[in-house]
């Protein structure tokens, strides 16, 4: 279980970050997803873990987005300002390559992040699970709790949007 969670934690964080666009929220979502997954699905067969974990992750993301909507609607004056992340702690890892390359990658990533954010949540799910995590159509359908046909539709539309947005700027 530990090895499995370790293998998916970074992907989960990235998916949550794309969906929430907030570092702390993304970490909270991943933590909650891990807790729930361990609590409810650790006895399931190991092959089923990945789609189930991402299903829980997206459920947590949806729950958080609903909560945020309510908070912004009624309690926006109580919410804190910008994220006060420590810049030293948030520095990139040691494997960062030369500055030019890093800048180019960061620019490309920012463009990608914006394009992914413009997708609907279902399209994001379909693309990140199928295109990035390389889950099968059936596994993606399990994670998204929809039919395989819907997965194919969302995935092809997501790819179309991304091609339109990133076509010119892609490195």
């Amino acid at each position: 279980m530990d090895a499995f969670l370790q293998s998916v934690e970074r992907q989960a964080y990235r998916i949550a970050l794309v969906a929430t666009r907030h570092h702390e929220d993304a970490l909270d979502v991943v933590q909650e997803a891990m807790l729930r997954f361990v609590e409810k699905y650790s006895k399931k067969p190991r092959e089923a873990w990945k789609p189930l974990f991402f299903r829980i992750l997206y459920n947590q993301i949806t729950t958080l987005q609903r909560r945020r909507t309510v908070q912004h609607k009624w309690f926006s004056w109580l919410l804190p300002g910008k994220d006060d992340t420590n810049p030293i702690e948030a520095r990139p890892g040691s494997r960062t390559k030369e500055p030019e390359h890093a800048t180019r990658v960061n620019t490309a990533y920012n463009a990608l992040e914006n394009a992914l954010t413009d997708l609907s949540l279902r399209q994001q799910q379909a693309f990140l699970l199928r295109g990035w995590q390389e889950l099968s159509v059936a596994e993606t359908a399990t994670a998204m709790q929809c039919s395989e046909g819907s997965v194919k539709t969302h995935y092809s539309r997501a790819l179309e949007v991304l091609r339109e947005r990133l076509g010119d700027h892609w490195p």
């Binding site: 520095r91 990658v105 990533y109």
Partner: peptide, 15 residues
């Protein structure tokens, strides 16, 4: 896109 996302994950900050 896959390569870029993997690259970002590999360079995730320590915190």
């Amino acid at each position: 896109i896959q390569r870029l996302l993997n690259d970002q994950n590999d360079n995730l900050d320590g915190a």
